[in-house]
């Protein structure tokens, strides 16, 4: 069994406990029954799906990080109460009620997991990627974070840097305030936000400046 491929490779082929056609039929059955009984409308489901597919994603978290990089007072508020600070930017909602932002520094690297299921700050990160939900990541990142970051994500954290693993739950959902990359002095907030990836917000990548964008 391979636990690799969480970084950039193709998703591993998998079989479902039930045949996939069977699962898909069950989902359609639920939807049609709920609509018939007037409990839900197709529109309500469509709205949720399109919101999460198109509109709610890590770009919101990227906006939060960029603001924190350019506005030290916002950064203080973010680290003190992430839910309130995100609300200032109009960002909030389901699964974002108790968010905590943890700051990377030259001596501390933070990484986020949910060992219990897959708690995740939806409003700032969208839906979790598959690797975040995988039993392998959830189990291993707690036990050997330095090794998982290196082997699965190609992120080398020197031994001199402390790694802190944050276990999300219904009570508290964490995201990472990554370090601002060098060479971005004078960049606008929007330009900075374009550098911030979902992986950096979870703590499995650094924020870097692509070659083409260097000045």
């Amino acid at each position: 069994m391979s636990e690799r491929g969480t970084g950039s490779g193709q998703p591993a082929p998998r079989r479902y406990p039930l045949p996939e056609e069977e699962i898909a039929a069950r989902v359609r059955a639920l939807e049609s029954l709920l609509i018939e009984k007037g409990l839900l409308s197709s529109d309500a489901i469509d709205r949720v799906v399109s919101a999460y597919e198109r509109d709610i994603g890590p770009l919101l978290g990227a906006r939060v990080v960029a603001r924190a990089w350019v506005d030290p007072e916002f950064r203080q508020r973010l680290l003190a109460d992430a839910t309130a600070a995100c609300r200032e930017l109009g960002i909030g909602g389901l699964q974002g009620e108790h968010m905590v932002c943890v700051e990377n520094t030259p001596t501390v690297h933070n990484v986020v997991v949910c060992t219990l299921c897959s708690c995740y700050p939806w409003p700032v990160l969208g839906l979790p990627p598959n690797w975040y939900k995988s039993p392998a990541y959830r189990a291993r990142i707690v036990i050997e974070p330095r090794r998982v970051l290196r082997e699965d994500f190609g992120l080398d954290i020197p031994d001199s840097v402390e790694i802190r693993v944050w276990d999300s739950s219904a009570e508290t959902r964490y995201f990472v305030l990554p370090e601002r990359p060098p060479g971005t002095e004078g960049w606008t907030e929007e330009e900075l936000a374009s550098l911030v990836t979902r992986e950096a917000l979870i703590g499995v990548a650094r924020v870097t400046v692509p070659e083409a964008a260097r000045r």
Binding site: R47, A51, D55, I56, G57, P58, L59, R63, G90, R198
Partner: peptide, 18 residues
């Protein structure tokens, strides 16, 4: 969710990193 979407206008121009 609707409120979040309503607040998304300004951010729509940002590239997705996903």
């Amino acid at each position: 969710v609707e409120r979040v979407i309503a607040n998304m206008e300004g951010a729509a121009a940002l590239p997705r990193r996903n």
